[in-house]
């Protein structure tokens, strides 16, 4: 098996889909000649031609509208929003148009669009590049949201996203792009959307998380182990739809849970997971379900990121609080 970074796995998934389905088109700002500002589309224009992989004018709303139109004419658009902080520019296309196409037409039309976009803190970008805005997408009916945390998951999930007949927002945490390599099969494979993955088994407390926080949580689990606390780490992988079964099975086993997200606390994925656990597993709980999140400010100025983004110590603290309740 090949060793790949997450960004290589993402490129590999797109190459696979461009090869296997003539209708797949890849486009966005700087994705052609330049291969994307992170090189996610490196070499794809050269290999598949400008008909299939192309630069767009600089307008996110334009890119979204184009994707809807191409989708209606039989294509399978894989569009890039250069940084997810620019989603506000294209929010109408995503939330009000793609997310409702199937519904408004009573199932006649669909928007089989994949929206790839980098996000995530810890890399000191200018403002509106790194914000965790998945909560906005989560509150949007009709949109699936995928956030991989490993190169292996990244490839299998992206292939599934592209093949999905409904719009999928696929968010790529910038910090994970090149921070480590993992084994990725060269052949194609899919990972079902809506399926979480237990990244570490444990019996005392469940840590439910996604994205870069998976790695902070694994680190926290190691520390907790040293103190005799066995933590289970669940990587949601797809935050919409949520894998309720995996979450409940874990919580019923451990009786204790925390939810960890890089996003602000207000109205996020964490809040929803807590509510679901509350609805379904209250009698199994030995302690309240707590959240580890960032504070409710705007995403911080670059030089304040380190103090703002939650880290493994915050996770250890919360896990102990739940454990010792």
């Amino acid at each position: 098996m090949a060793q790949m970074t997450m960004i290589q796995a993402i490129t590999d998934a797109m190459r696979n889909e461009l090869k296997s389905n003539e209708q797949v088109l890849v486009f966005g700002e700087d994705v052609g000649q330049n291969g994307g500002v992170f090189r996610a589309t490196e070499g794809l224009q050269k290999e598949f031609g400008e008909d299939r992989v192309f630069d767009t004018p600089l307008a996110e709303s334009g890119i979204g509208g184009l994707a809807i139109g191409l989708g209606l004419t039989g294509f399978r658009p894989v569009m890039e929003i250069q940084f997810f902080g620019f989603v506000f520019e294209v929010f109408d296309s995503v939330a009000a148009q793609m997310g409702r196409m199937r519904y408004r037409s009573g199932g006649v039309y669909t928007s089989p669009v994949t929206i790839r976009s980098p996000f995530g803190g810890g890399v000191k970008t200018p403002e509106l590049h790194a914000d965790s805005l998945e909560g906005l997408m989560y509150q949007t009916p009709g949109i699936k949201v995928v956030i991989p945390s490993t190169p292996y998951d990244a490839k299998g999930l992206l292939i599934s996203a592209i093949r999905d007949n409904d719009p999928v927002v696929y968010l790529e945490h910038m910090k994970l792009y090149r921070s480590f390599r993992g084994e990725v099969p060269e052949e194609e494979y899919t990972i079902e959307l809506g399926k979480a993955d237990v990244k570490r088994e444990g019996k005392d407390v469940s840590i439910i998380t996604y994205g870069a926080m998976v790695h902070a949580s694994l680190k926290a689990a190691e520390e907790l182990e040293k103190e005799g606390i066995s933590a289970e780490v669940i990587d949601l992988r797809t935050i919409s739809p949520l894998d309720i079964e995996t979450i409940m099975a874990s919580v019923e086993k451990t009786g204790r849970a925390i939810v960890v997200q890089e996003a602000q606390k207000q109205a996020g994925i964490g809040a929803f997971v807590v509510a679901e656990i509350n609805d379904r597993a209250i009698l199994h709980l030995e302690a309240p379900v707590l959240r580890v999140t960032a504070p409710d400010t705007v995403f911080p100025y670059a030089s304040a990121e380190d103090v703002w983004i939650p880290d493994h110590r915050d996770i250890v603290d919360k896990a102990k609080k739940v454990y010792n309740f």
Binding site: D296, T297, V298, Y301
Partner: peptide
């Protein structure tokens, strides 16, 4: 000065 989260909260 080094930035603090408390500074940022104050600007919300």
């Amino acid at each position: 000065p080094k930035q603090k989260v408390t500074d940022l909260i104050g600007f919300m």
